[in-house]
Design a protein around this nucleic acid. Structure first.
Lengths: 123, 123, 123, 123
DNA sequence: GTGGTCTAGACCACC
DNA sequence: GTGGTCTAGACCACA
């Protein structure tokens, strides 16, 4: 695991977990790796994973059973999609749209690039 | 001027300047406000404006005449568009596309939101 | 049985037992459920029940006959009331009082809420 | 500063700050001590203060100006009172009431102790 | 100067 | 074994 983006590592880990939940790789009510296990998997200090888990818990996406470990909430998928969608439409879209108008990038160019991206992704 | 986004203030100011250049509000070879004036306008620490100007200078969008002030480069508009476009397609688009596939946001929804954005913007 | 409070589970179980003793549901000198039985009833790890029993034993509220099981002490009720009362007046009350003054909650509001609580409880 | 309670230090620090806000010792929109200053005042590791500040920020009681420091929100007092009151009535009161009925502590005893507490406090 | 993040290592209560 | 907290110290971007 390498963390190249400028985004902080603990948020990138949170994103990976959210992705796994949305994609059904991790099921609801399932136990997720312990802090130490996850730290090993991600090649990161346990404290960093603690931050990720805390963050996801504050969003209600995971919860904790004392002395046992962290579990995915029963409605985690729904919640995660909601939160991510909100984030996307409220924060990212306006920024994108602003840039597209500034740079005069027409919608069909965007579409084309998107199709190319998807086809690359599916190979 | 309020800077509430997570993006750093000096980059936000740089963006504002680029916007003014691309939109023709500021002409090429024109002198731009001094650091202090800009700091007052933006309600920001002068050091922050210094960083913005340095950044734009490193991109070749503005240049400095010692003792006189900062000026917009003769090809600033072209350069700015180039840089911004590269940034957009190389860094932002992949991120957006990834999220759109994760959140299963279809291209037509994107289009629709974009149209709505444009019509709002033009009011 | 769900243990969602921040208080540790073994203390919550101890509280439940104390409650049963004070309310006369469990009589003095009576044998209480074995660790395993209690663990099943509470849906909890047996080790957790062991801690609860150890704790109650250290308070002199229950005692152990080797190979037979745990029993309620002959003076358990009196002891339990004493201990709980001390705990309440020495630890909890000062904390409550501090908050009531900080939040400017007048005594009559407290009274009212208490009355409402009792009437609900007796339904 | 000594932290004797079983509550974690970072939450105790948060409580102290909330207290100062409610009591008007710190005004709204006022800058609060930097992380390092607070750490020195509280005789605590800066990271611990970071946690306190993060917590208070997540509650909307303080906010951050990049590179400048933390400030008390314009509606911090109202928010703090709301949050604390909710906490008190939803979490602490039921617990207290339950104990009072279990231990058969009459309301007048509670009142009396409260009056004694207040008079002590005012000496 | 400011906060934000990360690592390393420790200790604790709890299950 | 689990997570929670705290310390120490470091580096970074930012104003």
């Amino acid at each position: 695991m390498e963390f190249r983006e400028r985004k902080s590592i603990y948020l990138q880990i949170a994103d990976i977990i959210i992705e796994r939940i949305i994609n059904g790789i991790w099921e609801e009510e399932q136990r997720i790796p312990s802090v130490r296990e996850m730290a090993t998997e991600m090649q990161v200090n346990p404290n960093t994973v603690v931050r990720s888990y805390n963050y996801l818990q504050s969003l209600g996406i995971i919860y904790n059973r004392r002395g046992i470990g962290y579990f995915i909430s029963f409605d985690a998928r729904k919640k995660a999609l909601e939160i991510k969608r909100k984030e996307f439409t409220r924060e990212k879209l306006p920024e994108i749209f602003k840039e597209m108008t500034l740079l005069k990038i027409p919608i069909y160019e965007f579409e084309e690039l998107y199709k190319r991206y998807i086809s690359k992704d599916n190979i």
